[in-house]
Write a protein that binds this DNA or RNA. Structure first.
Length: 109
DNA sequence: TCTGTGACCGCTG
DNA sequence: ACAGCGGCCACAG
């Protein structure tokens, strides 16, 4: 069953929705922008409440430029879908799930 | 490259 | 209300 989104989560969603198409951000970046020192907390918010297309959580990657996970899956078809979505937006990844164009990372939230 | 520890939020007992 | 556990992570050894 769902639960009312906390302010923390709402803040995360707001930032994620603000990510322009064709660019991505890292968990640490969001965490810092949110004022919390933990990126995992950010990932949790996205995992617990992936509001479908409303919140493009696929534009959020790890600091080491790896894709990370998707809707709770750290491997499998979900990751393939995430990679495909990003690639369709102009962000290319290799088979290792690594971002090819580091320039695609939006450093200005 | 891999393992271990740290940090933070939300859920369950 | 309190304590313990797990998770789309980060960093140091």
């Amino acid at each position: 069953m769902s639960r009312a989104p906390t302010e923390f989560e709402q803040r995360v969603y707001a930032l994620v929705q603000g990510i322009p198409v064709g660019e991505v951000v890292t968990y640490a970046m969001l965490a810092e922008a949110l004022g919390c020192g933990s990126a995992q907390a950010v990932g949790q918010a996205l995992k617990r409440n992936p509001f479908a297309p409303q919140v493009p959580c696929h534009r959020v990657i790890r600091t080491d430029l790896s894709i990370g996970g998707y809707v709770g899956e750290t491997q499998g078809a979900k990751l393939e879908q995430k990679r495909c979505l990003l690639q369709k937006e102009g962000v290319e990844f290799d088979r290792e799930g690594r971002l090819l164009d580091e320039q695609r990372v939006c450093t200005k939230l």
